[in-house]
């Protein structure tokens, strides 16, 4: 499955959050979208998922123009978003949260096997199957959110800041999982991250947004060596001391 975004704009009232972004995600590719807070990364994903309307531009999935499709139809076309902050429904159990992920599916029969697969992958979730999801740690909630996303049988999964609020160890686990899903299932990934180092390790290609505009794109190796990106997002190799004033 191939996603193509042409000159996309997103506006919230007078705020122009995304200003003419174009990008592609090829079949089986991991693409990272980098940028500081307020660069328009989340707005971009929301528009791709139909949670926010596109003010201008087009979103094309394979050969279909999905720019005006409602979210539910995009989900059925195998597009999934693991939202920022995970957004687990805490008054449902772990198991119910997973079941929820499969709501748009028609092939209900294979869902049980897939849930079993997710449980074998995450024994912590299996152990808390019938507990309220509120008892899970941040890392477990992220795994649950990804598991829930997987249950909609996506071919392209978008993840909004999956490392947010996680310890370095858990961040590594989440990134390892994303990489593994990409390799084993050919799942295409569109990853929005502030953890630029980790994202560039995983991604095949990356885009950099600044104030809603695309300012850079290319291979991770190239972006890593780019001096302006290094200054803006990667930090220096030697941590700089901030001088007051």
């Amino acid at each position: 499955m191939r996603l193509e975004v042409n000159d996309l704009h997103v506006r919230y009232g007078r705020v122009h959050a995304v200003r003419g972004v174009s990008l592609t995600v090829e079949e089986g590719e991991v693409v990272a979208v980098l940028g500081a807070n307020g660069a328009g990364k989340s707005s971009l994903l929301k528009a791709l998922m139909g949670l926010e309307p596109a003010a201008e531009g087009r979103v094309i999935l394979d050969d279909a123009d999905i720019t005006r499709w409602p979210t539910s139809r995009r989900v059925r076309q195998h597009l999934a978003l693991v939202p920022e902050g995970r957004r687990i429904v805490t008054s449902l159990t772990v198991h119910e949260n997973l079941l929820m992920g499969a709501f748009a599916r028609k092939d209900v029969r294979s869902v049980d096997a897939e849930i079993a697969d997710i449980y074998s992958r995450f024994p912590n979730l299996a152990a808390r199957r019938d507990a309220f999801a509120s008892v899970l740690s941040g890392g477990e909630q992220q795994m649950l959110a990804i598991g829930r996303g997987l249950l909609s049988a996506p071919k392209l999964m978008m993840l909004d800041e999956p490392s947010l609020g996680l310890s370095p160890r858990l961040t590594n686990e989440v990134f390892a999982l994303i990489g593994e899903l990409n390799r084993s299932r050919g799942l295409a990934i569109l990853l929005v991250e502030q953890n630029t180092h980790k994202a560039l390790e995983l991604a095949h290609r990356a885009y950099v947004l600044e104030l809603g505009r695309k300012v850079m794109e290319g291979l991770p190796s190239k972006l890593r060596d780019d001096p302006s990106l290094r200054d803006a997002y990667l930090g220096r190799a030697e941590p700089r001391k901030h001088v007051a004033g």
């Binding site: 949670l51 989900v75 939202p83 957004r87 119910e96 992920g101 709501f103 748009a104 829930r148």
Partner: peptide, 18 residues
């Protein structure tokens, strides 16, 4: 489950294709 999801977080319910 769906009604609980809609009650707690409409956006997530939306994301699940409801």
């Amino acid at each position: 489950i769906a009604i609980t999801a809609v009650h707690d977080d409409e956006r997530v319910a939306d994301l699940m294709g409801l």
